[in-house]
């Protein structure tokens, strides 16, 4: 007997059945297998980035646009965060230092904390939340609405246009944002010191510059390039490889933040170990 034509709702159910079969098959894959498949897929994605980054055409206009959107548009959030960190750290540290009679060390201690660790890591985490999730959601949405396929069939390399430009932008912009956050954070600290004291700008910053060394600043800046790279790459990976459907968009944005934040911590641990090894 001939199979009847499916009406619209039957057709949708038929599609849903196929999808559920595929999902069941995916779930039945063991967690370990899935983990290694994900690692392999991410490694291939990373290698493709390094291959395509040197391959023309260079999308310089898109790179400049993304640098503006990713860097300039993040200034208010990063600035406010930096200021609050500097202010709160100073207010919280003052009583403890006062107990030891080391209140005069407050600017130096706060400066070293902010520049070496807190500034880069907190800024990178804020950046992962704002920019990483944005990239993940944007690319996933483009994937769902077939915009990436449309680029591909029009003879454009979507990886070059979408991924390379965004990863380069995050890599170049995060260090600048961290420097900006550090400076604002130190001003926040200056305000904190002056809430219950009277220290001039000159004296405050003299103490900071006397306490800081090249090895405090340089490794901290270098690691932010890696933080930026990780945030951009993870965001792009999650968005570019998202599942079709609106659920995939939310999942991509969420995974981008979670994995980018995790990567920031892992890179930080490695960077601290390398810095310590080099200093010893």
């Amino acid at each position: 007997m001939e199979e009847p034509i499916l009406n619209q709702s039957q057709a949708e159910r038929h599609d849903a059945k196929i999808i559920s079969e595929v999902v069941s098959e995916t779930i039945s894959t063991s967690v370990i297998d899935k983990f290694f498949l994900e690692v392999a897929s991410f490694s291939i994605f990373t290698l493709r980035f390094f291959k395509d980054v040197f391959r023309p055409p260079y999308e310089l206009n898109e790179l400049a646009k993304q640098a503006f959107l990713i860097g300039y548009k993040s200034l208010p959030l990063v600035g406010i965060t930096g200021f609050i960190i500097g202010l709160v750290l100073t207010i919280q540290s003052r009583p403890t230092l006062a107990n030891f009679g080391a209140e005069s060390w407050l600017p130096a201690m706060v400066a070293v904390s902010i520049i070496r660790e807190i500034g880069p890591v907190i800024t990178a985490l804020i950046f992962a939340g704002k920019v990483g999730s944005g990239i993940g959601a944007e690319l996933a949405s483009m994937n769902v609405t077939e915009q990436i396929d449309a680029m591909q069939v029009s003879g454009t390399n979507p990886f070059n246009y979408l991924v390379v430009t965004r990863v380069l932008s995050t890599t170049l912009m995060l260090p600048l944002l961290v420097v900006y956050a550090d400076v604002i954070g130190l001003f926040g600290s200056f305000v904190g010191v002056n809430l219950s004291g009277d220290v001039t700008v000159y004296l405050f910053f003299s103490q900071i510059f006397q306490s800081l060394e090249f090895q405090d600043v340089f490794p901290a800046i270098i690691k932010t390039f890696f933080f930026g790279f990780a945030v951009g790459l993870v965001g792009c990976y999650q968005g570019y490889n998202s599942n079709k459907g609106t659920e995939g968009v939310g999942k991509a944005a969420n995974s981008a933040v979670v994995f980018a934040s995790l990567m920031v911590f892992i890179i930080d641990v490695i960077a601290v170990q390398i810095t310590n090894l080099l200093q010893n």
Binding site: T145, E146, Q147, D149, A150, V153
Partner: peptide
């Protein structure tokens, strides 16, 4: 040329 079902316009 490929005309997608959704149009696939760059929004």
């Amino acid at each position: 040329g490929f005309l997608f079902q959704s149009g696939a316009l760059y929004d």
